[in-house]
Design a protein around this nucleic acid. Structure first.
Length: 492
RNA sequence: CGGGACGUAGCUUAGUCCGGUUAAAGUGCGCGUCUGGGGGGCGCGAGAGCGGUGGUUCGAAUCCACUCGUCCCGACCA
């Protein structure tokens, strides 16, 4: 079994860090707060990208690329957006280095090479993009613009954690322009649905779709929709956001179009994004005390085949069977690794695939060849069974589906067990302390109350859930009228 | 940015309080050998000058100052 693993119960943060390190997903880099995403971790990101990209295109979007740098004058154009991100921007002030006259082995910033205007390393791309859209849009015939970009952004965070919060991260950001408010609103809801479908079907991570309160809203947005997931420590993770930007950016960048009536109007906008943070969510949703657990739909390796053999001859015989199974599985679109490395023992490989979260492992040894069987182990439950080799491909295919469903169901159950409804503030504090998780409670809709609850308990309003039937009541804190319950939780 | 902890071989750590020969162990790595259905055994070998800089001292991993970085708890945030 896995050795030297911190358990979730012992120390949840340490457990998380160890999984990231030992499953070979990422490591810290020489640059403060920035990570190196290692091949195995990046492979998960590629799987996510491929699926999301497909879904974006199915909903009519196309990809483009905009620059990393944002001139300060553009950045400051949309006031609220600029203000919201100002505290965490990296700024380029010079464009040249030169040899240090005092030490020929060193370089210094050439003071002669100061930029006339500073460049902001994008924390998000609304500014450059809307400045560009200005040139693309004259008429309603130019709309809508449905563009996505895969990019990196930089937010100079104080405290970073691999995947969950890094100073530089990878993401996609969709930026759309529309002729009407209704269309833009519908777009932001469509993308919210894309995100939640992706989270639930591919990540097997249940999410609550909701609306952010004013204080949690994206800087520059009229409305922020979000998906919120629950991690195994009961804390909430904002897994994706979709913003209805109103006409804020169109006004800031003077983007107008002539409508069918020939009148000029400002364009309506949305933006939406998910990031490498999803990998953090994926880890914290499914993994256990033996390491990473990956849902089959996103696992870079879905099936690992481990031969057990003595001598080259036996390996050759086993390889024949193994390669046949591999080919048949691959024909079904299943990714298979036949691990015939002679440099590691079977037991070592078992352990490795286990903490790397490979959903299914097949072991084939001489005993199996005699009996016409293979040993199949599933990562989610750690169960092993010996199966007849006949039609093994269909059995594996079904098993993968089964694992995917099981992980999702387990997460749904976990969330249900850790969601609570409360009516009074005392009860709220007690449940928050004793159980954590999502707490549904009435709130009077004011930022003041929200802030006070945050100050007193560290819990924030994660969202106003969209699916809940909104039943009126009284705010648990102020006693004032409430339009419906909202979700409180401690968050990442 | 505030509070706390920590930086010694690739990794995990002992040694630091109370300075003193050649810095110790496990694991990992290399070679050989026996092995092979859950991180295998035995033998041999390579590998660090103790995060960095500057001080104190006859002598510094150990004491002092500064600095960089990491982790945890807060504040901020996707």
């Amino acid at each position: 079994m896995a050795k030297d693993f911190t358990s979730r119960k012992e120390n949840y943060s340490q457990w998380y860090n160890e999984i990231v390190a030992k499953a070979d997903l990422a490591e810290h880099s020489a640059v403060r707060g920035c990570m190196v995403i290692k091949p195995y971790g990046y492979a998960i990101w590629e799987k996510m990208q491929a699926q999301l990209d497909k879904m974006f295109k199915e909903t009519g979007h196309v990809n483009a690329y905009f620059p990393l740098f944002v001139p300060k004058s553009l950045f400051e154009a949309e006031e609220k957006n600029a203000e919201g991100f100002a505290k965490e921007c990296a700024v380029v002030t010079h464009y040249r280095l030169k040899t240090d006259p005092n030490d020929k082995t060193k370089l210094i910033v050439d003071p002669e090479a100061k930029l006339e205007e500073e460049l902001i390393v994008r924390p998000t791309s609304e500014a450059v993009i809307w400045n560009t859209y200005k040139g693309w849009i004259q008429s309603y015939r130019d709309l809508p613009i449905l563009v996505n970009q895969w990019a990196n952004v930089v937010r100079w965070e104080m405290r970073t954690r691999l995947f969950l919060r890094t100073a530089e991260f990878l993401w996609q950001e969709g930026h759309t322009a529309h002729a009407t408010k209704e269309e833009a609103l519908a777009e932001s809801r469509t993308m919210l649905d894309v995100y939640s479908e992706f989270a639930e079907k591919y990540m097997a991570m249940p999410v609550v779709k909701g609306i952010k309160t004013e204080s949690e809203r994206f800087a520059g947005a009229e409305e922020t929709f979000c998906i919120e997931a629950m991690m195994q420590d009961g804390k909430a993770l904002q897994a994706g956001t979709s913003h209805f930007l109103g006409q804020n950016f169109a006004k800031a960048f003077d983007v107008k179009f002539a409508n069918k009536e020939g009148k000029l109007d400002h364009v309506w906008a949305t933006s939406w994004g998910v990031s490498t943070r999803l990998i953090g969510g994926l880890i914290m949703t499914h993994s256990d005390d033996n390491g990473l657990v990956l849902p089959p739909n996103l696992a870079p390796i879905q099936v690992a085949i481990v031969p057990i053999y003595k001598g080259e001859e036996q390996l050759a015989t086993i390889s024949e069977t193994a390669l046949k199974i591999k080919a048949n599985l691959e024909a079904k679109g299943i990714s298979v690794k036949f691990d015939n490395r002679d440099t590691h023992k079977p037991g070592w490989k078992f352990a490795e695939y286990e903490f790397k979260g490979v959903p299914v492992r097949i072991a084939i040894g001489p005993r199996d060849l005699e009996n016409g069987t293979v040993e199949v182990a599933r990562r989610d439950t750690l169960e092993k069974e010996v199966l007849q080799i006949a039609d093994i491909e269909t059995k594996i295919e079904n098993l993968l589906k089964n694992i995917q469903d099981n992980l999702y169901q387990k997460s749904i159950d976990f969330r249900a067990d850790n969601s609570h409804h409360v009516d009074s503030y005392d009860e709220f504090k007690q449940v928050l302390k004793a159980k954590g998780g999502f707490i549904y409670a009435h709130w009077d809709g004011t930022p003041e109350t929200e802030e006070k609850i945050k100050q007193e308990t560290k819990a924030t309003i994660r969202c106003i859930p969209l699916s809940e039937k909104q039943v009126e009541g009284k705010c648990m804190y102020s006693g004032n009228p409430s339009k419906g319950k909202v979700i409180f939780a401690k968050a990442y």
